[in-house]
Design a protein around this nucleic acid. Structure first.
Lengths: 222, 222
DNA sequence: GCTCATGGCTCTACACTGTAGATCTATACG
DNA sequence: CGTATAGATCTACAGTGTAGAGCCATGAGC
């Protein structure tokens, strides 16, 4: 059973990488494997399960990478974000799946655990670690999705092309930052700068906790 | 033309609110309007355009709310996040659309402009405003999507139910924060705490900029 | 050898999706 | 009256995921 299932997931992943997720129909996957469509079902129970299997494959690859990540917590936390982003760039179709189909595999749990460990090492009190992990991962997933889906594309929110639709003076903020909107955005640098800002946020929270009560105080949850 | 188009969008929005986005087929919308499916096309050009129209409707409603938001920048920035979250809770189907179909309507631009204005008022240098707006909005959209899609659901990442699959000691981070994982998560409080953390981040950036060169220095882009 | 059970496949079909293009219908205008 | 137009219906197509019946090859037991 496992041989055919792997073959099916391989085919689906290849199709998604070549032509995007919309190209991954059961018929297309079956064609690629060399069987008829209904033959997929004993191995992957449904289309939804196929998609979950595809995500599981990616997370498995990432978990292997993650296990080799060394350094202090800032280095590791930064590397985890970069690894997620590299994966999203190699497989743009995966981002929406990661956001819309929460993965509850052992590999996903390992990833969360790695972030927990880094935050604890940073001095974040244990009671704040789950929230901060969620904040950090939420930002990363949001960034990857925005990048993949074009929300950050140049000119997406540039209003100069729609001056006929909004009255003069309707966008004071844009007017004030106008000359910075012209610059090509470097999303690599931006992602790193954002990660650095979030790490500083983590440091500040750890420092506050150190100043008030120590790293694992028994105060009430926030 | 505008009467029928409004009717079609109303029908689509009602269907989505009642039964989710998957229920919004052209046939279902047409049934609700009382016409046959092909009759929708002169008014909304395609299914994709219908979805964009639905988003546009929501953003229009939010822009009206946003225009009435008053207070200093911290109050406003916080309120914008809350408004977005209220909208997502009233219309859970909208979140994935907002992330996957970047909206380039005047209302969307107005929303961005309001955040720009708040950041400028906070003292963030103009050259950093676009990046920080993207950071803040990325977090908010990511949070809303994660909430709507179940990523934050209790037990999603609780590994205690899968102890048979991971060796003892494989999750040191989880072990260290175990007792905080038992608590029911209050996502309202969490969202507010996260927003407060991001506002502090903004304050820190503004303060750094004030200390180094003033609010609109002519240094190179970051 | 034959029979039976099993796993894994094919075949046929269904309900559903978005939408193309031809045609119909009601209305307004000259 | 005839003509033009807007907006609808009708019919059909290509594609989607998947149900259920049946087929086929293989292995085990007699």
């Amino acid at each position: 059973m496992s041989g055919r299932r792997e073959e099916i997931l391989d085919a689906a992943l290849d199709l998604a990488d070549e032509r995007g997720l919309a190209a991954v129909s059961m018929r297309a996957v079956a064609d690629r494997v060399g069987v008829t469509p209904m033959a997929l079902y004993p191995h992957v129970g449904s289309k939804a399960a196929l998609l979950d299997g595809m995500v599981g494959r990616l997370l498995g690859g990432m978990a292997a990478e993650l296990a080799g990540t060394e350094g202090d917590w800032t280095v590791r936390l930064s590397a985890y974000g970069r690894q997620a982003r590299e994966l999203a760039k190699r497989h743009p179709w995966s981002v929406n799946l990661l956001l819309t189909r929460p993965a509850v595999t052992p590999d996903a749990v390992r990833f969360v655990d790695a972030i927990y460990t880094a935050l604890l090492e940073a001095g974040v009190p244990a009671r704040l670690v789950p929230r901060l992990e969620r904040l950090v991962s939420t930002f990363v997933l949001g960034f990857l999705a925005s990048e993949a889906n074009g929300r950050f594309a140049p000119g997406t929110l540039d209003p100069r092309g729609r001056r006929g639709q909004l009255p003069e003076g309707a966008l004071p903020g844009h007017a004030a930052v106008a000359r910075w909107l012209d610059l090509p955005s470097d999303l690599d640098a931006e992602f790193e700068a954002d990660q650095a800002d979030l790490r500083q946020l983590v440091e500040r929270i750890a420092a506050d906790a150190g100043a008030s009560a120590g790293p694992d105080s028994r105060t009430l949850p926030e």
